[in-house]
Amino acid sequence: MHVVDLATTTRRELNQQLHALAADTNDTHWRIDNPEGQHALVAGLDAPVTVEIMGHAGYYCAGMNKLATVIIGGNAGVGVAENMMSGTVHVKGDASQSAGATAHGGLLIIDGDASARCGISMKGVDIVVKGSIGPMSAFMAQSGTIVVLGDAGEALGDSIYEARLFVRGEVKSLGSDCIEKEMRPEHKQGLRKLLQDAGVSEEVSVDEFRRYGSARQLYNFHVDNAAAY
């Protein structure tokens, strides 16, 4: 294991070391000590490595991640795994606003709660939140899936496109053009797989979830819908 202590190494040096890794590197396991909430930690990774951050991370941790598995031992700041393309990011604590924003792929697991705008403008990522998510989550969510074991805040899925939302607890309110939808077998199958990937399939049943998605009424502007905007 490669250990980097951020008490003695700068973030810039760390990120540059990680960016320099070849796709077939043997340095596949990294541990980052003393992160102290620094921003942009391990952003822009592009190699199949595992990075464990031993504490809290600041804004944009694992931003634009490709291929790598990043485990954050504490809480994560704004925009964790923003625009992730592939790989896995696992937050052991809570996540701040805009977790997984605009992410195209990969899996984001949050063991605690996620704040407002979780999954905003998501473009294919899968997000599993074991706690609850804040208001305006999945705003303009284009594709991908959000699974919430707890509750969802106000205006869930406002102006949503084709993303799928599964919530186990209460939804405070749905945003414009977001409606509850039927849970068909294919949805349960996909949800079961995501729960397995997040390691909670033994704890909860897919039957406890309700599905939300787009009513597709705002896809083309019509004057009669003006009040919905």
């Binding site: 942009a40 952003a43 804004y59 931003g63 634009m64 923003e82 805009s98 705008r117 496109y161």
Partner: peptide
């Protein structure tokens, strides 16, 4: 479909956040 792009960035608000966003882009 009609594609409407957002008027605000999804993961930063205001100049203090923008500074951190620029840092991230530089790091990447």
């Amino acid at each position: 479909i009609d594609q409407r792009s957002a008027c605000r960035h999804p993961d930063w608000t205001g100049p203090d956040d923008l500074e951190i966003k620029i840092e991230e882009l530089r790091e990447i």
